[in-house]
């Protein structure tokens, strides 16, 4: 009788295709999002994350069809983010089939959008995505617009503010570790999970199975997100869950 730690494959999407960039720059095509999501759900993914990584800085195309198809094919929850600017954007994505919506740049610009969204759709649907980069020992600053725009805002203080404003979850990405496969930034994770009481998803850096467990056991993460290690078949969802279970982490084993 316990809540299982979630394992979340992340489908970064640009122009309707799954891509995974190294440090958000070099993008490699890794497939069709609907098929990939369905395959992950079948394989036991506890949730699918779907980030439209081109959305904040290019014309926002209609994601909604892809979201709808993905949600219909995958019998597990779907979090969608990218280019979400308002509570109305959130509602549209939820209506299309998303279970939770991640908001990034717009929340940094005006944290009140989190309050507006949480009043409209419930805090449990509102994920605040934070892209943080280490700027000094023990200090991380927020970057927006796909990691291209520095804001000078302290990531830990912002996570606390996001919770207060109505975010139901934090999706915390280490810009330094994203795509480099050397493990999550555990120091950053500890700083944020110690500062907030909402669930925190660890993102950025998973390259080996032990990294997933480290994020939970040492970083305090409620969920672990990874892309490359799954997209390119390095490890399966089952292997990842077995490795986590071997280190004493409760995982969902039947689906």
């Amino acid at each position: 009788m316990t809540l299982k730690t979630r394992l979340i494959p992340c489908l970064d999407v640009a122009n309707g295709r799954v891509v995974k960039g190294v440090n958000f720059v070099d993008l490699v095509d890794a497939g069709d999002p609907v098929q990939a999501a369905a395959a992950y759900a079948e394989a036991g993914a506890d949730e699918i994350c779907f980030l439209d990584i081109t959305a904040s800085h290019e014309d926002r195309g209609t994601l909604l069809d892809t979201v709808t198809k993905t949600a219909q094919e995958a019998l597990c929850p779907l979090t969608v983010g990218g280019g979400v600017r308002s509570a109305d954007d959130m509602k549209a994505l939820l209506r299309a089939g998303a279970d939770k919506v991640a908001i990034n740049s717009a929340a940094v610009r005006d944290p009140n959008v989190l309050t507006e969204a949480s009043l409209a759709v419930g805090a449990q649907c509102v994920v605040c995505a934070i892209d943080a980069k280490n700027v000094a020992p023990g200090r991380w600053a927020i970057f927006t617009h796909g990691g291209r725009k520095p804001t000078g805002i302290d990531a830990v203080a912002f996570a606390q503010q996001a919770e207060k404003k109505g975010a139901g979850e934090i999706l915390l990405t280490s810009m330094d570790r994203d795509g480099v496969k050397t493990g999550y930034d555990l120091e950053l994770l500890r700083a944020v999970t110690g500062a907030v009481n909402v669930p925190v998803i660890a993102s950025g850096g998973a390259g080996a199975l032990d990294h997933l467990s480290d994020a939970v056991l040492e970083g305090g993460a409620s969920a672990v997100l990874a892309a490359s290690i799954f997209h390119f078949g390095t490890y399966t969802i089952t292997e990842a869950k077995q490795a986590m279970e071997a280190r004493g982490i409760p995982v969902r084993r039947t689906w």
């Binding site: 316990t2 809540l3 299982k4 979630r6 805090a123 139901g168 009481n197 909402v198 669930p199």
Partner: peptide, 13 residues
């Protein structure tokens, strides 16, 4: 005192 929301997979008894 656990983190809220209660989010994820849990046993139904």
């Amino acid at each position: 005192g656990l983190r809220l929301p209660h989010m994820g997979w849990n046993d139904v008894s």
